[in-house]
Design a protein around this nucleic acid. Sequence first.
DNA 1: ATTAAAGCGGCAATGGTCTC
DNA 2: GAGACCATTGCCGCTTTAAT
Length: 334
Amino acid sequence: MTANQKMTLRLILTKADIRKVILNTRPSTVEDLISKLKESLGLHYNFSLQYQDPDFNNELCNLTDTEELPGKPTVKVIPVLELVPVSSDEVFSDTTSTAETEILSHSPQERLKKWPEFFDIPTFSVDVEYRLRQAHLLLMSEGIYLKVTKELKQEILERLAESMYCYTAYPTAPQFESVAAALISKHPCLQERGSTTRCCGWKNSLKHKMANYRTKRRQSGCLDVAVNAGKRGRHSAGGQPANKRIKKAKKGEINYLPNFPDGFDQAALEGACKDLVDEMQKRTPNGLLVKQKMDQTFALRRNEVVESEPAISTMVKRWPALFTEDQVCSRKRR
DNA sequence: ATTAAAGCGGCAATGGTCTC
DNA sequence: GAGACCATTGCCGCTTTAAT
């Protein structure tokens, strides 16, 4: 392949938006290809690429080298989800992260940010953004409101639920209101005629969506929402529902049961627990080490308390550091 | 059959009333 | 004032419905 050759490719942005793209020069690196695509299509988000590989019956493979591309390749855009970096005083955990961005994962660390004063509506898929822009123009010129189709609503709700979940799994009524208001403020074509707030339908849908989103997360193994499930008697197989004994959360609070930190399993955390006991037996325990290990093992302690309801005396033996002045004050701040 | 949206119902909190 | 009791309210998981 020569570098100056034109390049024609079929670009899959979404299921509904597949475009033919012609580049004047054939990019020599994947980075170059991505920046050329960003430039020619005006895409303002980061993405990686997958291509249909003729070696594997045209199944998609990650693109690592432009040499792998056939003559007229079909390439799929894979958006990279990014979170804004968080300042250390905004986090619940005392541990500070040096990462500039974090990919969304199932770890509780994703929910580090305080609910913002003004909720920032995320950017939707290219297709949805395009449709909203068109609808906005139509509203401005003709005064016609957008008729929100089922799949458009679905994509909007899904993206908003994801965004809200970064802050909390259980938004309050005013928080739902603020998101709905921010949505119609950013996209006036989504306003509802008939309601005074112009967005109470969105608020209602968001509430339902969030409940369904929690169920989804629960099924994929997120303990922090799973702890609130399984309380109904008639839905469990063996008489008593699984989590019946776990008290239902009060208004405005949740039963917090975080997953283990990334890279740590039960055994690793048990090790940290033992280190802590050993350290606490010293005449002058290393405060920094104790604090670090206590933060690391937070999820393990929560699991013990919720799962086995240990006696206080057991907790004192297993977690002597938990009852020091430093730790009591530190936990109160959480 | 699958999936998302919405309705239903159990449960804890809350507030009012009554009695002591 | 304190407590017991009862009705109401609102949250949220589970189930149903509707669309494909």
